[in-house]
Design a protein around this nucleic acid. Structure first.
Length: 290
DNA sequence: AAACAGGCCTAAA
DNA sequence: TTTAGGCCTGTT
Protein backbone atom coordinates (compact mmCIF):
# COMPACT_ATOMS: atom_id res chain seq x y z
CA UNK A 1 0.00 0.00 0.00
CA UNK A 2 1.05 3.56 -0.62
CA UNK A 3 0.17 6.89 0.90
CA UNK A 4 -0.32 9.86 -1.39
CA UNK A 5 -0.76 13.55 -0.84
CA UNK A 6 -3.64 15.26 -2.57
CA UNK A 7 -1.48 16.49 -5.43
CA UNK A 8 -0.64 12.89 -6.18
CA UNK A 9 2.88 12.85 -4.82
CA UNK A 10 3.78 9.84 -2.79
CA UNK A 11 4.14 10.51 0.92
CA UNK A 12 5.17 7.06 1.97
CA UNK A 13 5.95 4.31 -0.50
CA UNK A 14 5.64 1.26 1.69
CA UNK A 15 4.31 0.03 4.96
CA UNK A 16 2.20 -2.93 5.85
CA UNK A 17 -1.35 -3.09 4.57
CA UNK A 18 -2.95 -2.45 7.93
CA UNK A 19 -4.57 0.87 7.20
CA UNK A 20 -8.34 0.90 6.81
CA UNK A 21 -9.73 4.39 7.51
CA UNK A 22 -13.21 3.16 8.38
CA UNK A 23 -11.84 0.87 11.08
CA UNK A 24 -9.25 3.30 12.39
CA UNK A 25 -11.78 6.07 12.85
CA UNK A 26 -14.76 4.00 13.89
CA UNK A 27 -13.26 1.47 16.25
CA UNK A 28 -14.03 3.78 19.14
CA UNK A 29 -10.67 5.31 19.92
CA UNK A 30 -11.32 8.85 18.66
CA UNK A 31 -14.20 11.31 18.43
CA UNK A 32 -13.26 14.00 15.95
CA UNK A 33 -13.27 12.22 12.58
CA UNK A 34 -16.34 12.41 10.39
CA UNK A 35 -17.15 10.66 7.16
CA UNK A 36 -18.95 12.41 4.33
CA UNK A 37 -21.17 10.60 1.78
CA UNK A 38 -18.22 10.15 -0.56
CA UNK A 39 -16.29 8.24 2.07
CA UNK A 40 -13.89 11.07 2.75
CA UNK A 41 -12.92 11.46 6.39
CA UNK A 42 -12.20 14.89 7.83
CA UNK A 43 -10.62 15.34 11.21
CA UNK A 44 -8.75 17.77 13.40
CA UNK A 45 -5.72 16.62 15.34
CA UNK A 46 -2.75 18.39 16.86
CA UNK A 47 -4.20 21.67 15.67
CA UNK A 48 -4.43 20.78 11.99
CA UNK A 49 -7.23 19.70 9.68
CA UNK A 50 -6.81 16.67 7.45
CA UNK A 51 -8.93 14.98 4.83
CA UNK A 52 -8.25 11.33 4.13
CA UNK A 53 -9.74 8.74 1.80
CA UNK A 54 -8.98 5.31 0.45
CA UNK A 55 -9.03 4.60 -3.24
CA UNK A 56 -7.72 1.73 -5.34
CA UNK A 57 -5.69 0.17 -2.58
CA UNK A 58 -4.03 3.47 -1.73
CA UNK A 59 -4.74 6.13 0.85
CA UNK A 60 -4.79 9.84 0.04
CA UNK A 61 -4.09 12.61 2.52
CA UNK A 62 -4.72 16.31 2.01
CA UNK A 63 -1.37 17.37 3.39
CA UNK A 64 2.09 18.14 2.09
CA UNK A 65 5.29 16.34 2.89
CA UNK A 66 6.22 18.76 5.64
CA UNK A 67 3.03 18.36 7.66
CA UNK A 68 3.01 14.63 6.99
CA UNK A 69 6.42 14.23 8.59
CA UNK A 70 5.66 16.66 11.39
CA UNK A 71 2.25 15.33 12.41
CA UNK A 72 0.52 12.60 10.47
CA UNK A 73 3.23 9.99 10.13
CA UNK A 74 3.43 9.79 13.88
CA UNK A 75 -0.31 10.30 14.46
CA UNK A 76 -1.13 7.23 12.39
CA UNK A 77 1.68 5.29 14.03
CA UNK A 78 3.05 4.39 10.62
CA UNK A 79 6.39 3.15 11.86
CA UNK A 80 4.86 0.22 13.71
CA UNK A 81 4.14 -2.94 11.74
CA UNK A 82 0.59 -3.79 12.77
CA UNK A 83 0.37 -6.73 10.42
CA UNK A 84 3.04 -8.63 12.30
CA UNK A 85 1.78 -7.68 15.75
CA UNK A 86 -1.77 -8.60 14.86
CA UNK A 87 -0.82 -12.13 13.92
CA UNK A 88 0.83 -12.68 17.28
CA UNK A 89 -2.51 -12.12 19.00
CA UNK A 90 -4.25 -15.08 17.38
CA UNK A 91 -3.80 -17.27 20.44
CA UNK A 92 -7.18 -18.99 20.08
CA UNK A 93 -10.14 -19.18 17.75
CA UNK A 94 -11.86 -16.11 19.14
CA UNK A 95 -8.75 -13.95 18.86
CA UNK A 96 -8.06 -15.28 15.39
CA UNK A 97 -11.49 -14.08 14.31
CA UNK A 98 -11.10 -10.79 16.17
CA UNK A 99 -7.81 -9.85 14.54
CA UNK A 100 -9.07 -10.93 11.13
CA UNK A 101 -12.14 -8.79 11.53
CA UNK A 102 -10.16 -5.79 12.77
CA UNK A 103 -7.30 -5.93 10.28
CA UNK A 104 -6.58 -2.35 9.33
CA UNK A 105 -7.06 -0.81 12.76
CA UNK A 106 -4.22 1.33 14.08
CA UNK A 107 -3.90 3.04 17.46
CA UNK A 108 -3.72 6.77 16.86
CA UNK A 109 -1.21 8.92 18.72
CA UNK A 110 -3.68 11.50 19.91
CA UNK A 111 -2.88 14.62 21.85
CA UNK A 112 -2.33 13.72 25.50
CA UNK A 113 -4.65 16.28 27.03
CA UNK A 114 -7.30 15.76 24.38
CA UNK A 115 -7.36 12.03 25.02
CA UNK A 116 -7.60 12.47 28.77
CA UNK A 117 -10.39 15.01 28.46
CA UNK A 118 -12.28 13.06 25.80
CA UNK A 119 -12.33 9.87 27.82
CA UNK A 120 -13.42 11.70 30.93
CA UNK A 121 -16.39 12.82 28.85
CA UNK A 122 -16.91 9.30 27.54
CA UNK A 123 -17.87 7.78 30.87
CA UNK A 124 -21.37 6.37 30.98
CA UNK A 125 -22.06 7.89 27.58
CA UNK A 126 -22.59 6.73 24.01
CA UNK A 127 -20.42 7.67 21.05
CA UNK A 128 -22.81 10.07 19.28
CA UNK A 129 -23.23 12.08 22.46
CA UNK A 130 -19.51 12.01 23.25
CA UNK A 131 -18.81 13.38 19.77
CA UNK A 132 -21.47 16.04 20.17
CA UNK A 133 -20.11 17.22 23.50
CA UNK A 134 -16.53 17.30 22.19
CA UNK A 135 -17.57 19.27 19.11
CA UNK A 136 -19.42 21.89 21.13
CA UNK A 137 -16.45 22.13 23.47
CA UNK A 138 -14.12 22.78 20.52
CA UNK A 139 -16.48 25.22 18.87
CA UNK A 140 -16.94 27.20 22.07
CA UNK A 141 -13.38 27.31 23.31
CA UNK A 142 -11.01 26.01 20.65
CA UNK A 143 -8.83 28.03 18.30
CA UNK A 144 -10.47 28.44 14.91
CA UNK A 145 -8.74 27.02 11.88
CA UNK A 146 -9.77 28.47 8.56
CA UNK A 147 -9.48 26.28 5.49
CA UNK A 148 -10.75 26.46 1.93
CA UNK A 149 -13.53 24.10 2.99
CA UNK A 150 -14.68 26.12 5.96
CA UNK A 151 -13.80 26.79 9.56
CA UNK A 152 -12.74 24.04 11.93
CA UNK A 153 -11.84 24.19 15.59
CA UNK A 154 -8.86 22.83 17.44
CA UNK A 155 -9.35 21.02 20.72
CA UNK A 156 -9.20 23.64 23.50
CA UNK A 157 -5.90 23.43 25.35
CA UNK A 158 -5.68 22.72 29.06
CA UNK A 159 -4.59 26.25 29.91
CA UNK A 160 -7.64 27.78 28.24
CA UNK A 161 -9.93 25.23 29.83
CA UNK A 162 -8.48 25.79 33.28
CA UNK A 163 -9.65 29.41 33.16
CA UNK A 164 -13.28 28.40 32.70
CA UNK A 165 -16.01 28.24 35.29
CA UNK A 166 -18.37 25.33 35.58
CA UNK A 167 -21.16 27.52 34.21
CA UNK A 168 -19.10 28.16 31.06
CA UNK A 169 -19.44 24.46 30.25
CA UNK A 170 -23.22 24.49 30.31
CA UNK A 171 -23.53 24.58 26.50
CA UNK A 172 -21.83 21.18 26.42
CA UNK A 173 -24.69 19.58 28.38
CA UNK A 174 -22.14 17.16 29.79
CA UNK A 175 -23.64 16.98 33.26
CA UNK A 176 -21.49 15.88 36.16
CA UNK A 177 -18.48 15.42 33.88
CA UNK A 178 -18.01 19.19 33.73
CA UNK A 179 -16.34 19.37 37.13
CA UNK A 180 -14.06 16.49 36.14
CA UNK A 181 -12.97 18.35 33.00
CA UNK A 182 -12.06 21.42 35.00
CA UNK A 183 -10.14 19.44 37.60
CA UNK A 184 -8.15 17.72 34.86
CA UNK A 185 -7.47 21.00 33.06
CA UNK A 186 -6.25 22.66 36.22
CA UNK A 187 -4.03 19.74 37.08
CA UNK A 188 -2.47 19.70 33.61
CA UNK A 189 -2.06 23.44 33.27
CA UNK A 190 -0.41 23.85 36.65
CA UNK A 191 1.91 20.93 36.14
CA UNK A 192 0.37 18.95 38.98
CA UNK A 193 -0.20 16.34 36.29
CA UNK A 194 2.68 16.32 33.78
CA UNK A 195 1.42 14.24 30.87
CA UNK A 196 4.62 14.64 28.90
CA UNK A 197 6.67 13.30 31.80
CA UNK A 198 4.21 10.48 32.44
CA UNK A 199 4.50 9.34 28.84
CA UNK A 200 8.19 8.74 29.40
CA UNK A 201 7.77 6.85 32.66
CA UNK A 202 6.23 3.52 33.56
CA UNK A 203 2.69 2.52 32.76
CA UNK A 204 1.92 1.79 36.39
CA UNK A 205 3.09 5.24 37.44
CA UNK A 206 1.03 6.87 34.71
CA UNK A 207 -2.19 5.13 35.74
CA UNK A 208 -1.54 5.98 39.36
CA UNK A 209 -1.05 9.68 38.60
CA UNK A 210 -3.97 9.87 36.19
CA UNK A 211 -6.24 8.41 38.84
CA UNK A 212 -5.56 11.34 41.14
CA UNK A 213 -7.80 13.38 38.84
CA UNK A 214 -11.41 13.59 39.90
CA UNK A 215 -13.53 11.40 37.66
CA UNK A 216 -10.62 9.33 36.38
CA UNK A 217 -10.81 5.70 37.46
CA UNK A 218 -9.14 2.56 36.18
CA UNK A 219 -10.87 2.51 32.81
CA UNK A 220 -10.47 6.16 31.86
CA UNK A 221 -6.86 6.13 33.08
CA UNK A 222 -6.13 3.18 30.81
CA UNK A 223 -7.75 4.96 27.86
CA UNK A 224 -5.73 8.12 28.50
CA UNK A 225 -2.56 6.03 28.73
CA UNK A 226 -3.29 4.04 25.58
CA UNK A 227 -4.65 6.71 23.27
CA UNK A 228 -2.91 9.79 24.67
CA UNK A 229 0.36 8.61 26.14
CA UNK A 230 0.59 5.87 23.51
CA UNK A 231 1.43 3.27 26.10
CA UNK A 232 0.50 0.24 24.06
CA UNK A 233 0.40 -2.13 26.99
CA UNK A 234 -2.53 -0.24 28.53
CA UNK A 235 -5.65 -2.41 28.51
CA UNK A 236 -8.93 -0.55 29.08
CA UNK A 237 -11.71 -2.85 30.25
CA UNK A 238 -15.15 -1.43 29.58
CA UNK A 239 -18.53 -3.13 29.45
CA UNK A 240 -17.80 -4.67 26.06
CA UNK A 241 -14.49 -6.07 27.21
CA UNK A 242 -16.19 -7.42 30.31
CA UNK A 243 -18.68 -9.26 28.11
CA UNK A 244 -15.86 -10.83 26.13
CA UNK A 245 -13.93 -11.80 29.22
CA UNK A 246 -17.03 -13.33 30.77
CA UNK A 247 -18.12 -15.18 27.65
CA UNK A 248 -14.81 -16.26 26.15
CA UNK A 249 -12.47 -16.50 29.12
CA UNK A 250 -14.59 -17.53 32.08
CA UNK A 251 -14.51 -14.14 33.78
CA UNK A 252 -10.76 -13.88 34.19
CA UNK A 253 -8.22 -12.60 31.76
CA UNK A 254 -4.61 -11.50 32.03
CA UNK A 255 -3.60 -9.06 29.26
CA UNK A 256 0.02 -10.02 29.88
CA UNK A 257 -0.50 -12.92 27.47
CA UNK A 258 -0.42 -10.33 24.68
CA UNK A 259 2.83 -8.77 25.85
CA UNK A 260 3.88 -5.18 25.32
CA UNK A 261 1.19 -4.50 22.69
CA UNK A 262 -1.78 -5.73 24.73
CA UNK A 263 -3.60 -2.45 24.15
CA UNK A 264 -3.70 -3.12 20.43
CA UNK A 265 -5.15 -6.56 21.11
CA UNK A 266 -7.77 -4.92 23.26
CA UNK A 267 -8.80 -2.74 20.32
CA UNK A 268 -9.39 -5.76 18.07
CA UNK A 269 -11.39 -7.46 20.82
CA UNK A 270 -13.51 -4.37 21.48
CA UNK A 271 -14.17 -3.69 17.81
CA UNK A 272 -15.07 -7.30 17.11
CA UNK A 273 -17.43 -7.49 20.09
CA UNK A 274 -19.17 -4.22 19.37
CA UNK A 275 -19.34 -4.28 15.59
CA UNK A 276 -18.94 -7.88 14.67
CA UNK A 277 -19.77 -10.77 16.93
CA UNK A 278 -22.53 -9.70 19.29
CA UNK A 279 -24.49 -7.35 17.05
CA UNK A 280 -24.41 -9.85 14.23
CA UNK A 281 -27.33 -11.87 15.46
CA UNK A 282 -30.44 -11.05 13.49
CA UNK A 283 -28.61 -8.66 11.26
CA UNK A 284 -26.82 -9.08 8.01
CA UNK A 285 -23.16 -9.75 8.55
CA UNK A 286 -20.78 -7.02 7.62
CA UNK A 287 -18.61 -7.73 4.64
CA UNK A 288 -15.04 -8.29 5.66
CA UNK A 289 -12.37 -6.45 3.76
CA UNK A 290 -9.27 -7.98 2.36
C1' DA B 1 -42.50 5.53 31.19
C1' DA B 2 -38.53 3.40 32.97
C1' DA B 3 -34.23 1.85 31.88
C1' DC B 4 -29.95 2.31 30.15
C1' DA B 5 -25.46 4.38 28.21
C1' DG B 6 -17.84 2.72 26.42
C1' DG B 7 -17.69 5.02 34.88
C1' DC B 8 -16.71 7.11 39.06
C1' DC B 9 -17.47 8.38 43.83
C1' DT B 10 -19.04 7.55 48.35
C1' DA B 11 -20.91 5.04 51.98
C1' DA B 12 -21.55 0.80 54.06
C1' DA B 13 -20.75 -4.07 54.87
C1' DT C 1 -12.37 -5.57 48.86
C1' DT C 2 -16.59 -5.93 47.13
C1' DT C 3 -21.37 -3.92 46.49
C1' DA C 4 -25.26 -0.56 45.87
C1' DG C 5 -27.05 3.78 44.81
C1' DG C 6 -26.66 8.28 42.84
C1' DC C 7 -25.11 11.27 39.33
C1' DC C 8 -26.34 14.91 34.37
C1' DT C 9 -28.33 14.20 30.12
C1' DG C 10 -30.29 12.07 25.99
C1' DT C 11 -32.28 8.27 23.77
C1' DT C 12 -35.21 4.20 23.40
Amino acid sequence: MKLYSRDGSCLMPTFDDDFVPEKIFECGQCFRWNRDPDGVYTGVAHGEVLKLWAQANAVYLSCDQESFERIWRSYFDLDLQYGEIRKSFAIDDFMYRAVSYGAGIRILKQDKWEALCSFIISQCNNIPRIKKIVEIFCREFGRSIETENGIYYAFPDAETTAQLRLSDLEPLRCGYRGAYILDAARAVSTGRLDLEALSKGSFAAAVCSLRTIDGVGEKVANCAALYGLHMLSAFPVDVWMKKIIAKQYGGKFDPAVFGEYAGIAQQYMFYFARDGEILQEGKSRKIERG
